[in-house]
Write a protein that binds this DNA or RNA. Sequence first.
DNA 1: CGATTTGTTCATTTTCAATTGAACAGTTGG
DNA 2: CCAACTGTTCAATTGAAAATGAACAAATCG
Lengths: 175, 175
Amino acid sequence: MPATEHSEILPGLSDSVPVGLSEVEREVIAHFVEISRALGQPRSLAEIYGLLFISPRPLAMDEVCQRLDISKGSVSQGLKFLREIGAVREVEVKADRRAHFEAVAELRKLAGRFLRDQIGPRLAGSEARLKKLSNAAFGLEGAHKQHVDSRVTMLQSWNKNTRRILPLAIKLLGG
Amino acid sequence: MPATEHSEILPGLSDSVPVGLSEVEREVIAHFVEISRALGQPRSLAEIYGLLFISPRPLAMDEVCQRLDISKGSVSQGLKFLREIGAVREVEVKADRRAHFEAVAELRKLAGRFLRDQIGPRLAGSEARLKKLSNAAFGLEGAHKQHVDSRVTMLQSWNKNTRRILPLAIKLLGG
DNA sequence: CGATTTGTTCATTTTCAATTGAACAGTTGG
DNA sequence: CCAACTGTTCAATTGAAAATGAACAAATCG
């Protein structure tokens, strides 16, 4: 007997939501969990996105809850965030009033929005801070001032470099 | 009276290690703390690197402890890591047997090593996982197999793109 | 050689963000 | 209108990662 892919742990309850995750699903989710770690994003986000990414059809919130065994609150917040950064889109499903979601699978869009929303603001804050720093350095004198000035200049140039590279990276990723 | 830059909170104890941090030091450290957050690195690392970055001379471990008010253990571990990724180098100081450290301030080296040591291994692991995934997908059938295959292919291509970009980013950062 | 200084390690504690779950609000269908 | 369903919010809990500090090893000094 071939193993059923959507493993049904409880045979009696068929044709509702499958219980547990298939091997493929587990692996895909694990993959996204790793990536999200590197990006400093919470695990549940990655799990939700991974499940939607590999799902052949859009899923409703409570389906995600059940399949991943995470709380309604987490899924609600997770989906909210994923929608905001455009990693997930809401789609209609006939004869079902629940909201359904599917993964946006275009890397260019994904990476672009992530960088714009998560990294961009930080860089902006950085710039402001460097200005403040530059002021603080203004009051100094002599060799000490020279040293501080050179360091501050360095930081400003690093920031500028980073700004230059981000849009470029997005282009390359998408192509 | 002009504010002393290396603020001396306890006037009697001069010419040993200054107590507290100057405004410039605080700002520079805050800057690195922000960056380290974005990179998912612990705060103490950023504080240590920031202090060394703005310091006009190499510092010994216990100086770092005192100035930042961090435990000896943390500083020891922090410096170990920073040395490993090449963000800090050890230098000799005459008539002082303690090890002294200074910040490596070349962005190219810094970013390069960070990407190589922290991101590279993750990408490698990713590749392995994708192979496993590809195998798991092999046993499937029909439309479901087609869907899974297309998704797996997508993941593989994303990985490849990322690999292509990293070295490029390093080059651009340094220039 | 002790005594002191320097530095590491690692079990415990602390901290902080992620997760939970219960209360709540809004919709829909009967 | 009310009962069931769907989804959000937020105070409390949990858990994972970081910081502490004491025990230890190694080097240096007198």
